[in-house]
Design a protein around this nucleic acid. Structure first.
Lengths: 194, 194
DNA sequence: TGTACATCAGTGAACGCGCGTTCACTGATGTAC
DNA sequence: TGTACATCAGTGAACGCGCGTTCACTGATGTAC
């Protein structure tokens, strides 16, 4: 092998990382292959040595970006270990997350676009959403029944994603009041009978 | 005036209607001016007699489509007068709405794309979201304080939008179980202390 | 240890296509006489 | 009442541009001798 073992995998990871940020900031269609490669400090021709198509890259972003954004949201929470569902929702529904789609949640930044995508994109998308639901459910009190935990995880994740999507559509002042209301709503919903 | 008074306004409305459906089904960037005009049974050249640009049309869609989709969701509820917030959320979080973005909620279908749009798009977007929040708050029990109503409207709308966005990213079987959970979550959250 | 070689990651020019937009034109209509 | 005209909504060919993708090539590297 004429190149260091890990070289190609590292370059690929750099492309996925650059694409994940650019897509979340500007949308899938607004960011071209050339722009992504420029951000990864490469030239556009090399792209097809790593991916079969732009769609193939989008599928890779869906499979790999959520881990990054969860780490970024955990940092915002100031935590290294997974926190409770309420802590997660509170950090997620923050003005910081609203203002920074490029390092935030993929579903809130690109959900509808990804849902309209090819099977290759939808398959990892469904898997990542289910994974997120399972983890949220697991972070709820073990005194609750599995059915209640599943229900609360579903409702909480819906509030999180919808809260950020809507906040990004509002003016800044309106948005922070709105986010505060959604945080309080989730707090109340998770507190009852607990 | 060589043409009937209402003629041009009617044609314009036909274009906005066709665009609203096509955009919600396939996304803003996936639908061209030519395709929209074809759906409105016109040729693409005539477009610029009605709109200054494609962006201008998107702004018109944001200003005018929500009224249509609210009517369509009210029909799903089987109601002519505005129902309670819980009835609205229940109809919104239905498999039918999930399966039909083209006649459903604009925010759930295009929220992130619109939020990334020009000022001309964002201005009506923020106004329509606030309008939706006000109406939801108004449909809650008058025994609740205005602050609580605002909070519950915010949380409920977040659940609605996030619920549909996420459901559209799941497989069909997973999605209907997920929507059922979100409906139950909203029911519980709106029921307490009421 | 030093050198020639094979490998393959990355380069950059070029392609074909579809898009948003423009514009000279057509023809259906209400109005003036 | 009938006809010539002015208006303007809609037509369709054409434009320039940026995109995803291809491909012949370059050159940095590990290996064989």
């Amino acid at each position: 092998m004429p190149w260091p073992k890990e070289h190609k995998a590292e370059t690929r990871a750099r492309i996925v990382h650059a694409a994940a940020a650019a897509f979340r900031e500007h949308g899938l269609e607004q960011v071209g292959v050339a722009e992504i490669m420029r951000r990864a400090e490469l030239t556009h021709g090399g792209f097809y040595g790593h991916f079969a198509s732009k769609d193939d890259l989008v599928a890779a972003v869906v499979a790999e970006a959520p881990a990054e954004s969860e780490a970024s949201l955990a940092a915002l929470r100031g935590a290294t270990s997974p926190g409770g569902a309420l802590d997660e929702a509170t950090a997620y529904l923050s003005p910081e997350h609203m203002a920074h789609p490029e390092r935030g949640c993929l579903f809130a930044a690109l959900g509808p676009e990804l849902a309209r995508g090819s099977r290759g994109v939808r398959r990892p998308l469904a898997a990542k959403i289910q994974q997120r639901l399972s983890r949220l459910a697991a972070s709820l009190s073990s005194r609750l029944s599995p059915a209640v935990r599943r229900r609360r995880a579903a409702g909480t994740l819906a509030c999180m994603v919808g809260g950020i999507v809507l906040a990004r559509g509002l003016d800044e002042a309106e948005a922070s009041a709105f986010l505060k209301d959604v945080r309080a709503f989730v707090r109340d919903a998770l507190a009852e009978d607990d």
